[in-house]
Design a protein around this nucleic acid. Sequence first.
DNA 1: TCCACTACTAGACCATCGATCCGGTCACTC
DNA 2: GAGTGACCGGATCGATGGTCTAGTAGTGGA
Lengths: 213, 213
Amino acid sequence: MWSRPRKAPRQTLTLERIVAEAVALLDEEGADRLTMRRLAERLDTGSTTLYWHVKTKDDVLDLALDAVFGEVPLPDPAGGWQAAVRELIGGWRAALLRHPWSATMLDRPLMGPNALERTEFLYQTLTGAGFTAPQAAAYSLSNYVMGSVVMQVTWQDRDDEDTGAFLRERAGLYPALAEHGLDHEWDATFDEGLGYLLTGMRQAGKPKTGRLD
Amino acid sequence: MWSRPRKAPRQTLTLERIVAEAVALLDEEGADRLTMRRLAERLDTGSTTLYWHVKTKDDVLDLALDAVFGEVPLPDPAGGWQAAVRELIGGWRAALLRHPWSATMLDRPLMGPNALERTEFLYQTLTGAGFTAPQAAAYSLSNYVMGSVVMQVTWQDRDDEDTGAFLRERAGLYPALAEHGLDHEWDATFDEGLGYLLTGMRQAGKPKTGRLD
DNA sequence: TCCACTACTAGACCATCGATCCGGTCACTC
DNA sequence: GAGTGACCGGATCGATGGTCTAGTAGTGGA
């Protein structure tokens, strides 16, 4: 998708409008309700027309997902690498949570310009902090956000009543889970886990470079 | 009479056979090639028949996914909590990677008995290690595995040629990414990130309980 | 011995989807 | 003012998830 050359625009229907409407539709109705027909209808056109601007439906999804990444603010690096990482990752998470459908789509290559820009920022922040091989750190951090969002989106809107009851019924089988796993303070838990990662990264880096704090 | 084919004996089609065949089909052809028709064909029956054993296709997927979790060995807790966690999480990752299609399905509630058993084990290991509130730790760890698998599955089979070329062409835009982000030693990187997490967890727990080592 | 009942199977069918074919229309350019 | 290429859409294709209808084979009861 990203490597294909862009067609010249004309007027009424533009790629931007398509993407914006796709995001709106996804926000309002969810991933499984996005069909080319429905999207076309909202844009007051025929489904065929969309295929002039876009090769497949997957293109629409790729573009919509990258639009979400575009909402992630790039932090000011002046506050130190850990603050920058926290801010970037936090914004990353917030943007994905604002558009819960995006969690279902993280299994596609994030090669859009917005996603790449954020990843590049992460790598630069980490190398700037003294990591000579920032890959593992960047990998851990992005894995952690992705996983967190997928997990939260999967569980938070499901009837907490239902899962709660389900697990409590089986408290005999899963005692620790039933006792500690039910109430979720998503934000706090996320921050705590991010803290673990940053602590570990600081520790691992220190002996080598002495700069990571 | 004698030329008539003997009708297959009773009990030919069981839920177990359906799930096993679904996993095999998913392994061989991938998630998007699993259709009820194809699955029925492989089981030498009609697609309708499947719906006697199963309510929807999602049921098949839920069962198949939980079957993958069933492959994750439960470690021996005797070696200490960190070894147990490493072993559980490593086996978790390995099982998912053996069935790459499973990465696409992590956005559904993992309420199967096999998945729950592993989660319970994780919670028990962590509480046994002295974590009074093991939720954040368990959350971090499972998020990390999930994210790692999704990331690796997304990227490793994609033509490394293509993404490599794509990024190198844009090395001006994404210098740090092009320099450090291309070669992947998946296993080592995963272990390193897991190390960060465990270090962070140890540090965080120590002052409170003094037992986490 | 017969009959009802359960477990199970299949073909035809429905609505819907992504995508394409083919036939247009409109705004520019030469 | 003819032509060209950007743009649009109705009809349609093949495939899918799922249901309806119509069974059949074996089992237990009377």
